[in-house]
Protein backbone atom coordinates (compact mmCIF):
# COMPACT_ATOMS: atom_id res chain seq x y z
CA UNK A 1 0.00 0.00 0.00
CA UNK A 2 2.69 2.49 0.96
CA UNK A 3 4.84 1.91 -2.13
CA UNK A 4 1.73 2.55 -4.17
CA UNK A 5 1.24 5.88 -2.41
CA UNK A 6 4.86 6.80 -3.00
CA UNK A 7 4.59 6.05 -6.73
CA UNK A 8 1.41 8.09 -6.77
CA UNK A 9 3.32 11.07 -5.37
CA UNK A 10 5.98 10.66 -8.01
CA UNK A 11 3.43 10.23 -10.78
CA UNK A 12 1.48 13.29 -9.63
CA UNK A 13 4.61 15.42 -10.05
CA UNK A 14 5.45 13.89 -13.43
CA UNK A 15 1.86 14.23 -14.67
CA UNK A 16 1.50 17.79 -13.29
CA UNK A 17 -1.55 16.56 -11.37
CA UNK A 18 -2.22 18.83 -8.41
CA UNK A 19 -5.29 16.89 -7.33
CA UNK A 20 -3.56 13.50 -7.33
CA UNK A 21 -0.67 15.06 -5.38
CA UNK A 22 -3.00 16.23 -2.62
CA UNK A 23 -4.82 12.90 -2.40
CA UNK A 24 -1.54 10.98 -2.19
CA UNK A 25 -0.13 13.35 0.46
CA UNK A 26 -3.24 12.84 2.59
CA UNK A 27 -2.87 9.08 2.14
CA UNK A 28 0.69 9.33 3.51
CA UNK A 29 -0.68 10.93 6.66
CA UNK A 30 -3.66 8.58 6.96
CA UNK A 31 -1.40 5.54 6.63
CA UNK A 32 1.04 7.06 9.13
CA UNK A 33 3.86 6.54 6.65
CA UNK A 34 7.38 7.91 7.07
CA UNK A 35 6.86 11.47 5.82
CA UNK A 36 10.48 12.20 4.92
CA UNK A 37 10.71 8.92 3.04
CA UNK A 38 7.55 9.72 1.11
CA UNK A 39 8.88 13.16 0.21
CA UNK A 40 12.27 11.89 -0.89
CA UNK A 41 11.23 8.72 -2.70
CA UNK A 42 8.06 10.15 -4.22
CA UNK A 43 7.94 13.92 -4.63
CA UNK A 44 11.64 14.67 -4.81
CA UNK A 45 12.33 11.74 -7.12
CA UNK A 46 9.62 13.01 -9.46
CA UNK A 47 10.93 16.56 -9.37
CA UNK A 48 14.48 15.42 -10.11
CA UNK A 49 13.27 13.53 -13.17
CA UNK A 50 11.45 16.70 -14.27
CA UNK A 51 14.67 18.70 -13.82
CA UNK A 52 16.62 16.19 -15.90
CA UNK A 53 14.06 16.28 -18.69
CA UNK A 54 14.16 20.08 -18.60
CA UNK A 55 17.93 20.08 -18.80
CA UNK A 56 17.77 17.80 -21.84
CA UNK A 57 15.09 20.06 -23.34
CA UNK A 58 12.59 17.23 -23.53
CA UNK A 59 10.16 19.50 -21.70
CA UNK A 60 10.02 23.28 -21.21
CA UNK A 61 9.22 25.80 -18.51
CA UNK A 62 5.39 25.44 -18.63
CA UNK A 63 5.60 21.73 -17.75
CA UNK A 64 8.25 22.34 -15.10
CA UNK A 65 6.13 24.99 -13.40
CA UNK A 66 3.06 22.76 -13.55
CA UNK A 67 5.06 19.90 -12.01
CA UNK A 68 6.40 22.23 -9.32
CA UNK A 69 2.82 23.24 -8.65
CA UNK A 70 1.87 19.59 -8.04
CA UNK A 71 5.01 19.13 -5.94
CA UNK A 72 3.96 21.96 -3.63
CA UNK A 73 0.34 20.80 -3.46
CA UNK A 74 1.65 17.67 -1.70
CA UNK A 75 4.73 19.16 -0.02
CA UNK A 76 2.70 21.84 1.76
CA UNK A 77 0.50 19.13 3.28
CA UNK A 78 3.47 17.00 4.36
CA UNK A 79 5.89 19.70 5.49
CA UNK A 80 4.28 20.38 8.90
CA UNK A 81 4.68 16.68 9.71
CA UNK A 82 8.39 16.55 9.01
CA UNK A 83 10.60 16.36 12.06
CA UNK A 84 12.99 19.28 12.39
CA UNK A 85 16.36 18.53 10.85
CA UNK A 86 15.06 15.31 9.36
CA UNK A 87 15.88 16.31 5.81
CA UNK A 88 19.14 15.28 4.24
CA UNK A 89 20.97 18.56 4.68
CA UNK A 90 18.96 20.74 7.02
CA UNK A 91 20.99 23.74 5.91
CA UNK A 92 19.15 26.99 5.48
CA UNK A 93 18.88 29.06 2.34
CA UNK A 94 17.43 32.59 2.40
CA UNK A 95 16.00 33.52 -0.99
CA UNK A 96 14.17 36.46 -2.55
CA UNK A 97 13.53 38.50 -5.65
CA UNK A 98 15.23 41.75 -4.72
CA UNK A 99 13.52 45.08 -4.24
CA UNK A 100 12.18 46.65 -7.42
CA UNK A 101 11.17 43.50 -9.25
CA UNK A 102 8.03 41.40 -9.09
CA UNK A 103 9.08 38.62 -11.49
CA UNK A 104 9.38 35.52 -9.32
CA UNK A 105 9.04 32.53 -11.62
CA UNK A 106 12.78 31.87 -11.74
CA UNK A 107 13.07 32.30 -7.99
CA UNK A 108 10.18 29.89 -7.36
CA UNK A 109 11.77 27.30 -9.59
CA UNK A 110 15.11 27.61 -7.82
CA UNK A 111 13.29 27.37 -4.50
CA UNK A 112 11.55 24.16 -5.56
CA UNK A 113 14.81 22.54 -6.59
CA UNK A 114 16.57 23.67 -3.42
CA UNK A 115 13.76 22.27 -1.26
CA UNK A 116 13.67 19.10 -3.33
CA UNK A 117 17.35 18.70 -2.51
CA UNK A 118 16.76 18.77 1.21
CA UNK A 119 17.51 22.33 2.17
CA UNK A 120 15.29 24.48 4.34
CA UNK A 121 14.24 27.57 2.44
CA UNK A 122 13.37 30.91 3.95
CA UNK A 123 11.45 32.53 1.12
CA UNK A 124 11.14 36.31 1.36
CA UNK A 125 9.05 36.47 -1.79
CA UNK A 126 9.32 39.11 -4.48
CA UNK A 127 10.11 42.82 -4.43
CA UNK A 128 11.66 42.25 -0.99
CA UNK A 129 12.96 45.49 0.58
CA UNK A 130 16.74 45.44 1.03
CA UNK A 131 16.53 46.14 4.79
CA UNK A 132 14.01 43.32 5.28
CA UNK A 133 16.16 40.79 3.53
CA UNK A 134 19.30 41.82 5.40
CA UNK A 135 17.38 41.60 8.68
CA UNK A 136 16.21 38.08 7.75
CA UNK A 137 19.82 37.09 7.15
CA UNK A 138 20.78 38.53 10.54
CA UNK A 139 17.87 36.81 12.33
CA UNK A 140 17.94 33.42 10.62
CA UNK A 141 21.66 32.99 9.97
CA UNK A 142 21.26 30.99 6.76
CA UNK A 143 24.19 29.10 5.21
CA UNK A 144 23.30 30.35 1.78
CA UNK A 145 21.83 33.57 0.44
CA UNK A 146 20.16 33.51 -2.97
CA UNK A 147 18.91 36.55 -4.88
CA UNK A 148 17.33 36.97 -8.27
CA UNK A 149 16.05 39.71 -10.55
CA UNK A 150 14.78 39.90 -14.09
CA UNK A 151 14.98 43.66 -14.41
CA UNK A 152 18.09 45.69 -15.05
CA UNK A 153 17.32 48.63 -12.74
CA UNK A 154 16.95 46.33 -9.75
CA UNK A 155 20.43 44.88 -10.03
CA UNK A 156 21.55 47.61 -7.67
CA UNK A 157 19.34 46.14 -4.93
CA UNK A 158 21.63 43.08 -4.99
CA UNK A 159 24.61 45.32 -4.44
CA UNK A 160 22.80 46.99 -1.54
CA UNK A 161 22.05 43.62 0.10
CA UNK A 162 25.75 42.73 -0.16
CA UNK A 163 26.66 46.07 1.44
CA UNK A 164 23.99 45.62 4.12
CA UNK A 165 25.35 42.16 5.00
CA UNK A 166 28.83 43.60 5.45
CA UNK A 167 27.57 46.50 7.55
CA UNK A 168 25.68 44.11 9.81
CA UNK A 169 28.73 41.87 10.07
CA UNK A 170 26.94 38.82 8.64
CA UNK A 171 28.74 38.42 5.31
CA UNK A 172 31.46 36.06 6.56
CA UNK A 173 30.73 32.35 6.51
CA UNK A 174 27.82 32.69 4.10
CA UNK A 175 27.79 31.82 0.44
CA UNK A 176 25.90 34.17 -1.84
CA UNK A 177 24.46 33.08 -5.16
CA UNK A 178 22.69 35.33 -7.66
CA UNK A 179 20.71 34.67 -10.82
CA UNK A 180 18.32 36.18 -13.35
CA UNK A 181 18.26 37.52 -16.89
CA UNK A 182 20.33 40.71 -16.67
CA UNK A 183 23.03 39.55 -14.25
CA UNK A 184 26.11 37.50 -15.04
CA UNK A 185 29.28 36.11 -13.48
CA UNK A 186 31.06 39.42 -14.00
CA UNK A 187 28.38 41.28 -12.05
CA UNK A 188 28.45 38.62 -9.33
CA UNK A 189 32.16 39.12 -8.74
CA UNK A 190 31.78 42.89 -8.99
CA UNK A 191 29.35 43.00 -6.07
CA UNK A 192 31.22 40.31 -4.12
CA UNK A 193 28.76 37.44 -4.54
CA UNK A 194 30.22 33.93 -4.64
CA UNK A 195 28.44 32.51 -7.64
CA UNK A 196 26.23 33.30 -10.61
CA UNK A 197 23.91 30.47 -11.61
CA UNK A 198 22.70 30.41 -15.20
CA UNK A 199 19.70 28.24 -14.28
CA UNK A 200 18.21 26.32 -11.35
CA UNK A 201 20.17 23.13 -12.11
CA UNK A 202 23.47 24.96 -12.14
CA UNK A 203 22.56 26.78 -8.94
CA UNK A 204 21.61 23.66 -7.03
CA UNK A 205 24.67 21.80 -8.31
CA UNK A 206 26.86 24.57 -6.95
CA UNK A 207 25.06 24.59 -3.60
CA UNK A 208 25.67 20.88 -3.17
CA UNK A 209 29.32 21.18 -4.18
CA UNK A 210 29.84 23.84 -1.52
CA UNK A 211 28.29 21.50 1.02
CA UNK A 212 30.59 18.65 0.03
CA UNK A 213 33.55 20.95 0.56
CA UNK A 214 32.18 21.72 3.97
CA UNK A 215 31.31 25.25 2.89
Amino acid sequence: MSTETISKLEKAVLDMDEHMARTAANDVLKQKMDVVGAINNGLVKGMKTVAQKYEKEEIYLPQVLASANAFYAAFDILRPHMLAGATSSGKKVAICVVEGDIHDIGKNLVKTMIEANGYTVIDKGRDCPVEDFVQTIVDEGPHFVAMSTLMTPTMKSMRRVMEGMKEEGVRDGKKVIIGGGPVDAEFASEIGADFYGDDENEGVKWLKEQDKRGG
Binding site: M16, P62, Q63, L65, A66, H103, D104, I105, N108
Partner: peptide, 11 residues
Protein backbone atom coordinates in the same frame (compact mmCIF):
# COMPACT_ATOMS: atom_id res chain seq x y z
CA UNK B 1 -0.62 36.33 -13.82
CA UNK B 2 2.60 35.45 -15.59
CA UNK B 3 3.40 32.21 -13.78
CA UNK B 4 -0.21 31.04 -14.11
CA UNK B 5 -0.32 31.81 -17.83
CA UNK B 6 2.87 29.85 -18.40
CA UNK B 7 1.47 26.89 -16.46
CA UNK B 8 -1.77 27.15 -18.42
CA UNK B 9 0.22 26.37 -21.57
CA UNK B 10 0.76 22.90 -20.09
CA UNK B 11 -2.42 22.50 -18.05
Amino acid sequence: GSQEAIMDVAM
